[in-house]
Design a protein around this nucleic acid. Structure first.
Lengths: 366, 366
DNA sequence: CCGGATCACTAATGCGTATTAGTAATGCGC
DNA sequence: GCGCATTACTAATACGCATTAGTGATCCGG
């Protein structure tokens, strides 16, 4: 009878005998007198299924301790088909030298929430993807090594994001982003927060309020205007285009004369939006100062967001704070939900009202 | 004839058909019309062995791009290879709410250097209690997923670090750490920097200089003292215990009287070490102010490091800056060297002398 | 035109753990 | 004492990639 030709065994070269490598589940199993599968079951502590006798469990755990067994994360993650890695992508450096413009406040929340859920974070930057893979149309390909990815900043290229989303790769954008169909995002609820600020002013007796905003169409701007107008309506105050001033260089600047004009018309409160540059607030603040307004007494000011760093020393503006850490945490929650296929989490995060000291009772007119 | 009983096939449940999962090498191979092994060979670009025709290589790479294939890091690691990931582990939160104590400045350099070398960073958060890594005795096990790991802060548990090192896992500690045999580290060269500051003072004519330090034995402290004394010796100035003052509560505080005493003895320059709290500098600065010293004229002050944030507004102290980003970069270089088995890189990073305005010519004594 | 060498690839592993089908052993009801 | 459940395990995968022995094919020298 023809003995089947003994095929040689390809594959990995045998490990060098010298080094005592760290123990595997197989060694633990041998020592405990059980099978490798049993060791895995004892250690896994899975919710359902297998039942293990108390004695076996003890034997296994003793062996684990005796050998100092530590599971190999690579193997665990491979077998579980889950890396427990969440990507964090920012097109610019995640840690820019200029701390002011960094994503630091978001990362605080991202890190916490990720840690709480047992995820580790992989940091990708525009430059890092250039290292491993070409920075071509597939610059974002490398993020696929994670189970899902969080995108910071508005510079994430739409085409590539679309591709990831289309492939079913879990993606969450930090900051509202509606133009991209199917892209999950989390953002701050500027509408409610702005509305609340107006309500506050109205409660203080202000009957005419003007919003100063910049002339762009970012969602963050339109949301604030929306909330502002909603707040006016709710309080039964005059809204409409007259209540909103769009500053634009050089035609329409927020001049001292313009401010005086408003005051003469009976406007007693002014609201500025927050932008990257803080220009709206700076202009409003500057004009008010120039005109010589005694801020909480003659007229009230409010800021829909936080002041720019250079104005941080001034009296705290009435307005709201964007809870950046919570935003980061919410983004992680949503990403985790997508990764595990659960129902999507809440995309909007509430801002917190900041009383500040630039708003007071409306001046009494005789 | 008895057909051998068709044994059912245990193992993993089939993947849910709905979701298009990330592409595998197998899919790439199918698309390119080659075997999975060929894909691996093309992508691996290993030094020796297999030769691949130019055409096949092109077909494979095209397929890789078309599918957006990215290797699974866990699988790569398990197959005893690299995954181009470097871990960053901090026992405390990497992004603490308190920005002052953050590792941010280091991370700036870490990220840059890692990106430049084609590595991505994985943030392993030590504070993670739930989820994947229970905070038990094996909190550090997760880092083995990466090719190597950088440890920040002095809280990394020695036992676990020792274990990693013993297993030959590449580890670099940011900050000197001699007590752990075989642990690689990078640190700032406090000795040379301190010596340089003393040399500067000596060149300005100061003949008696006193070091004010706190009463602990951290390497950062002893190094500075070492460099200080070395500087004195080099300049032919009196050293010995009398030149060093260890402040300790409540017995030995840096009082105004003590300072006056030194001045009377002919001391014309004072040097403080930098610590987490900045207490040494604060005490020295405060006492000098209290005594009414006109700083660069009556006596010179120097700080071996950077001032605490609350004293940042004061005149810039003469001393040196710790180049934190460069330290981070150096740590990555060393880690990369360990990972690739090259010769170890330089562990010491030079500090940069900061002229400042608190040191001037020694006052002339008549 | 045949033996050996080189080339270009593929088949068949192994890495260490998680999962699941299967299987003895025991308990239980009637 | 026979079926049926339950309990407590184990055998046999699969996960995705790297590695290596092997296999045709082609080339080359004599």
């Amino acid at each position: 009878m023809e003995e089947p030709r003994k095929r040689a065994r390809p594959g990995r070269a045998p490990a060098p005998a010298g080094r005592t490598s760290r123990p595997r589940q197989a060694e633990v199993a041998r020592l405990a007198g059980v099978s490798q599968a049993t060791v895995s079951l004892v250690l896994g502590a899975r919710k359902q299924g297998a039942t293990i006798s108390e004695e076996t469990r003890r034997k296994v755990l003793d062996a684990v301790r005796a050998l100092g067994y530590v599971p190999d994360p690579a193997a665990s993650r491979l077998a579980a088909a889950r890396n427990n890695l969440l990507g964090v992508f920012s097109f610019t450096s995640t840690f820019p030298t200029d701390v002011q413009h960094s994503y630091y406040p978001f990362l605080v929340g991202v890190e916490q929430e990720a840690a709480a859920r047992g995820y580790d974070l992989v940091l990708f930057t525009g430059s890092s993807t250039g290292g491993a893979g070409a920075a071509g149309p597939n610059a974002l390909a490398r993020v696929r090594l994670a189970d899902g990815c969080l995108f910071l900043g508005r510079h994430a290229p739409a085409e590539e994001l679309r591709r990831l989303v289309a492939d079913g790769f879990p993606v969450v954008h930090l900051g509202r982003r509606d133009e991209l169909e199917g892209l999950a995002w989390v953002g701050a609820d500027y509408i409610s927060a702005s509305q609340e600020v107006v309500a506050h002013l109205a409660a203080l007796g202000h009957r005419r309020i003007v919003l100063v905003r910049e002339d762009d169409e970012a969602p963050a701007s339109t949301d604030r205007e929306h909330g502002f107008l909603k707040g006016l309506e709710e309080a039964g105050l005059p809204g409409g285009p007259a209540a909103v001033f769009r500053s634009a260089d050089p035609e329409r600047e927020l001049t001292a004369e313009r401010l005086r004009g408003w005051l003469d018309e009976g406007v007693t409160a002014f609201v500025a939006e927050e932008t990257d540059t803080g220009d709206a607030w700076r202009a409003l603040h500057g004009a008010a100062h120039f005109v010589g307004i005694d801020c909480p007494r003659d007229a009230s000011l409010a800021l829909l967001g936080s002041p720019p760093p250079d104005l941080a020393e001034e009296p705290v503006p009435t307005g709201f704070d964007i809870p950046r850490p919570q935003l980061g945490a919410a983004a992680v929650r949503m990403l985790a939900a997508l990764v595990s296929g659960e129902a999507a989490a809440e995309p909007l995060v509430a801002c917190t009202f900041r009383p500040g000291s630039t708003a007071g009772p409306a001046p009494v007119r005789y």
